[in-house]
Design a binder for these strands. Structure first.
Lengths: 340, 340
DNA sequence: CTGAAAGCGCTTACAG
DNA sequence: CTGAAAGCGCTTACAG
C-alpha cells in the first residue's frame, strides 16, 4: 500500500493525497476527511525514507551516550531516566530518535558527523560525555545542532543542560544547618568534573552565607565511588574536631560515609548526619535511608529537547555560538540519614 | 556531495561508484581503490534514506522498551546494560538502531507495527515488556521478526531471550548448602511473572536434589520490592523453626531481608545468610554486601541480536512459529551476606 | 568491467 | 482546490 494505490482508490491524484495527509490548507475539507478515513482504513502509512529524501529533512534526532561512562556509579542510574524523558519529549514534538553507535576503528573522529549526514539527522542529543571527547569535536564544531546533558560544548550551535549543582549543594547545607549542625564537612568529586566543582562551590557559598566556619580539612577529596567516600569520612571522623554532618557530592560516597560511621560506632543521624547527591536507587535501599539532592532526570531530558528545538526552529540563520546553558532545579529528599 | 558529484570527479558513472562503494565484485580492483580513496577524501557518505528507498531495506532495527516498567526496582538496572549491549551488537552487524515511542492515543494497538512499516524496519527488539501488552500483539502476530528479552511472544517470527532463572536459583541453593545450611527458605516474586516462577521452580528442584526439607511456610510471597522482602523475612524469622538462610528472588527483596535480620538482632551472615538475584547496583553498596545471582546483561543483549539475525537471515521463507528460546547463563557473585 | 536508464515513494513548485 | 510532472539520491537489471 503506497500513495499511488491510495490515490487510485480515493479517485484523486497522489499530489492531493499527499496534501491531505500532510494537513495542507489547500485541500477542501471534504476531500481531506475522505482521504484520511480511507488511509486509516487501509492502514496506509507514508514511507519515511521517501519523505526524507524529497523533503531533505528526516524529523529525526540522533542520540549519543558513552558506554564507557556506564561503569561510573555516578551516571549509570541517570542515563535510563533521561533516555526515557528524551524519548517522550521528542515523540511529543513528532521527532524520531536514532541511536548512534560508539565509533569504531575507522576514522572515529568524524564518525558521528558522518552518521548525522548519512541519515539526514537534524540534531543530536548527547548524554553525559566528557566534553573533550575527540569524537564529539567535529560534531560540535559543525553546524549540526547539539544539546548536551552534563556535556560542555563549545561549538557554534550547541547548548548545555545540567542540574543546578550549586543550588542543590546549598540546599543540603541549609537543611543540615536548620537541623542545628554547625560543623559540616564535605566529600568532593574529582575537581575537574563540572558536577564536582559546582557542588563544592555551592557548598562553600552556603557555609559562608550561614556564617559557618569551614576549616580546609573539612573538604575531603573523593572520586564519586563508595570506597573513596568511606575513606574520606573515616579521616573526617578522626579529626580533632570532627564534623557532626557530612555533605557528599555523590550518593555512592555518601553511602561509604554511612559505612564509616557505623565502623566508628556512630549512630546516624544522631551522632552524624549525612546528605548525598543524585538520588540513585540505592539511596532508598540502604539503612538508614539516605537524604539526598535528587536530580530531575525527566526535567533534564525535557530541557535538552526544548533547547534543541529552539536551535532547530531558529534554523541555520540563528546564533553562531553556544546558547545560554539550561539549568534544571534539584530537589532535596529527606530520609533517615538526617532525621526521622 | 552526492554520488553524482563523486562520479563526475572520479570520471566514471554513478553506477560504477555505487558498485565500488558497495564492494560489488564486478568493479576492477584499481577503479574501486581509486573511488574509495576519493570518497574518503571528500568525506562522501551515501544517503541512507535514498538507499533504503531503492533497496527496500533499511538495515535498521527498532527498539522498544516500556517506560512504565522503569518504576519497578526489578527492571530498572537492566535496561541500560542491555541497551548498550544491543547497540554494540547491532552496530557490529552493521545495523542501525531506531527507538520506537510508547504509543499515544491514536490507535495504539497497531502503532508499533505502523512505525515498523513507515521506517522499513527489518526487525524489532523488545526489552522486558509484559507479553500480554496489547500494543505488542499486532507486531508479534505480523511477519516482522521480533526478539524479546524477558518477553514471551507467541507470533510466527518471534524469539524469547532470558536468563537461566532456574539454574541461577539452583546455584544459590547449592552455594548455601555447601556452606552448611540445611534450613533454607525463599522469598518469591508475583507468581504469574516468568522470572518469579522460574526461580521458584529452580529453588524447589535444588532443595529436592539436595534432600532438603522444604516446609511450605519456607516459601514466602513478595512482590520484588524491598518492603515485601522485609515483611516476608520477618515472618520467616518468626517461625518456630526459622531458616538459617534465605534465597530472595530479587535483590531489592534480599536487601529488605537484610534489614529484617538487623531488626531481629541477627548478624548476617553468622545468624542468617542471604542470597539475592539480579546484581543491581545496590547489591554491592549495602552492608553486608549482597551475595547474588547476576544476570549477564551483555550476553542477553547479544543473544537477542543473534537470535534476531537468524530470523532475518532465514528470511520470510523461514519457520512460521516462535523459535526456541535462548537461555543465557547466570553467575553467582559471592559477597558478605553469605560469608567472607 | 562499465554505462544509460528506469524506478524506489514521496513532495512541491507550476500551471490551471 | 486539483493534477501532471519533475526530482530527491541512490541501486540494479539490462545491454554492451
Amino acid at each position: 500500500m503506497n500513495i499511488r494505490e491510495l490515490a487510485r482508490r480515493s479517485g484523486v491524484s497522489t499530489a492531493t493525497v499527499s496534501r491531505a495527509l500532510n494537513g495542507r490548507a489547500e485541500v477542501s475539507e471534504a476531500t481531506r476527511a475522505r482521504i484520511r478515513r480511507l488511509a486509516s482504513e487501509l492502514g496506509y502509512a507514508p514511507n519515511e525514507p521517501a519523505r526524507t529524501l524529497v523533503r531533505r529533512r528526516s524529523d529525526t534526532i540522533g542520540l549519543i551516550w558513552d558506554s564507557r561512562q556506564e561503569s561510573r556509579g555516578l551516571h549509570n542510574p541517570f542515563l535510563l531516566g533521561m533516555l526515557s524523558a528524551v524519548r517522550t519529549a521528542l515523540s511529543e514534538a513528532d521527532y524520531h530518535l536514532m541511536v548512534l553507535t560508539t565509533p569504531g576503528e575507522e576514522d572515529p573522529d568524524s564518525a558521528y558527523l558522518r552518521a548525522v549526514r548519512r541519515h539526514n539527522l537534524e540534531g543530536v542529543i548527547v548524554l553525559t560525555m566528557p566534553s573533550d571527547d575527540r569524537c564529539l569535536r567535529s560534531l560540535a564544531d559543525s553546524e549540526v545542532p547539539c544539546a548536551g546533558i552534563d556535556t560542555a560544548f563549545t561549538g557554534p550551535r550547541t547548548v548545555r543542560v545540567s542540574s543546578d549543582n550549586a543550588a542543590g549543594a546549598q540546599a543540603a547545607v541549609e537543611h543540615l544547618h536548620a537541623l542545628g549542625h554547625r560543623r559540616i564537612a564535605t566529600i568532593t568529586g574529582p575537581p575537574h568534573l563540572p558536577p564536582a566543582f559546582e557542588r563544592l562551590a555551592g557548598f562553600r557559598r552556603a557555609c559562608e552565607r550561614l556564617g559557618l566556619r569551614l576549616p580546609e580539612e573539612y573538604v575531603a577529596r573523593g572520586d564519586f565511588f563508595m570506597d573513596s567516600g568511606e575513606r574520606a569520612a573515616r579521616e573526617l571522623l578522626a579529626l580533632r574536631r570532627p564534623p557532626t554532618a557530612i555533605f557528599a557530592a555523590g550518593d555512592q560516597m555518601a553511602i561509604g560515609a554511612l559505612h564509616a560511621a557505623a565502623d566508628a560506632g556512630l549512630a546516624v543521624p544522631r551522632d552524624l548526619a549525612v546528605v548525598g547527591f543524585d538520588d540513585i536507587d540505592a539511596a532508598a535501599l540502604v539503612r538508614p535511608a539516605l537524604t539526598t539532592v535528587a536530580q530531575d532526570q525527566r526535567a533534564l531530558g525535557e530541557a535538552a529537547v526544548a533547547a534543541l528545538r529552539e536551535m532547530l526552529d531558529a534554523g541555520p540563520a540563528g546564533p553562531k555560538r553556544p546558547a545560554e546553558p539550561r539549568i534544571v532545579p534539584t530537589r532535596l529528599i529527606v530520609r533517615g540519614s538526617t532525621g526521622v
